[in-house]
Amino acid sequence: MTDSFVFKGRAWVVGDDIDTDMIYHGSYLPLTDPQEMAKHALEYVPGMEDFTDRVQPGDILVAGRNFGSGSSREHAVITLQYNDVAAIVAESFSRIFYRNAVNLGFPILEVAGVTRAVETGDELEVDANTGRICNLTKGTEVQGTPLSGLEKEIMTSGGLFNFLKKDMQTAE
């Protein structure tokens, strides 16, 4: 990976089991414009109702266990991407959310213990290449599991879409 996979930004910390209805509610599924989808990010997460008003480009979402559980809806990734959230760091991800993030080229990182190490508003440096998280506010570090192999290739291509295009061009 390149330096473009190192992110510096403010943290937003949410809890465990943040499901896809909380991230992007089912009633907005008919929306197709990502900018419109972006208006409803985290709307059903208690305490995060005004997230879309306050989030700044480059902010980093820090979540507990099982982030993105529930539906297979890709909107849950897109809504965060289009708020210019730089990356999601979670104790663990639900598997379809994880796949969707990889396939949409959205940087994610599994880091055990991260919710104990970070508070909302802390300044973080996330290195998706090495899996290292530096909490610049607290002067602490935590180590996560970086992507590898095919997942990493897809992610660094900017997602499955670009990965396939590249693949097909090579094939031609």
Partner: peptide, 8 residues
């Protein structure tokens, strides 16, 4: 699976 990969 997700939508993008279903398209893939």
């Amino acid at each position: 699976i997700g939508r993008t990969e279903a398209a893939a």
